[in-house]
Amino acid sequence: MKFNVTLDRDEDGVWIVECPSIPGCVSQGQTREEALENIKDAIAACLEVRAELGLSATSDKSANSILELCGKVSTKLG
């Protein structure tokens, strides 16, 4: 699956990355690259937990394999 993510820097220079289509799926990193790698792990963990709880993979009911929500950066899981 391909997910769009948002990527911003906080006031301390830490990169914050979020996957808007998966509620609560947020990560960070000291570098942009580290943040993007970390969000891949976070997405995988969030999807695993949502599956265990019997929830849909994303909050978007019409989601298919490509989610185009509000991301500036796209990351492919897998």
Rank of each mutant, 00 (worst) to 15 (best):
D60C: 09
I39S: 08
K40A: 04
S62M: 06
E37L: 08
S74Y: 07
D12A: 11
S65V: 08
R50W: 14
G71W: 01
K40H: 05
M1Y: 06
L67A: 07
K2R: 14
K76C: 04
C19W: 00
S62G: 07
V49G: 03
E48Y: 13
N64M: 02
K72V: 13
N4T: 09
V26L: 12
L47R: 14
N4W: 04
E33S: 09
I16D: 09
V14K: 10
S74W: 07
V26E: 00
A45H: 14
E18M: 08
E11Q: 15
E52V: 03
G71P: 02
C70F: 08
P23V: 00
D10M: 01
L69P: 01
S74I: 10
W15Y: 13
C70G: 14
D41N: 09
I43N: 12
A35P: 05
C46Y: 14
N64K: 13
M1G: 08
I43T: 05
P23N: 12
V5H: 05
K61Y: 04
E33Q: 15
S59D: 13
L36R: 11
I16E: 06
K40G: 09
E34A: 09
E52N: 06
V5P: 00
A42L: 00
D12M: 02
D12N: 12
V26I: 15
C25K: 06
G24D: 10
C19H: 11
S21F: 03
C25T: 10
D10T: 02
G29P: 04
E11V: 01
S62E: 15
V26Q: 07
L69H: 11
Q28G: 00
C25P: 05
E33T: 14
M1C: 00
R9V: 03
R9H: 09
I43L: 01
V73P: 03
M1I: 00
A45G: 11
L47D: 05
L55P: 06
T31M: 05
L69W: 02
Q28L: 02
T58I: 00
I66A: 12
A42Y: 03
C25V: 04
E48L: 04
E18P: 02
V5C: 13
E34S: 07
D8G: 02
P20A: 04
S65F: 08
G13W: 06
E37N: 12
Q30S: 11
I22A: 09
P23E: 12
V5E: 02
V49N: 11
E11T: 05
F3V: 12
D8S: 09
V49Y: 12
V73C: 04
L77S: 03
E68S: 11
T58E: 08
D60I: 15
E68D: 12
A57I: 00
S74R: 02
R9S: 07
R50V: 10
N4L: 06
A63R: 06
L53M: 13
I43S: 11
P20L: 08
A51E: 15
L67F: 07
L77Q: 05
F3P: 07
V49T: 15
E18Q: 08
V73I: 07
K72T: 15
S56T: 15
I22N: 05
Q28W: 10
V14A: 00
V14M: 10
L7F: 05
T31C: 04
T75S: 02
E34D: 14
A63L: 01
A44G: 01
C70I: 04
S74Q: 03
P20V: 03
A45M: 11
E37A: 12
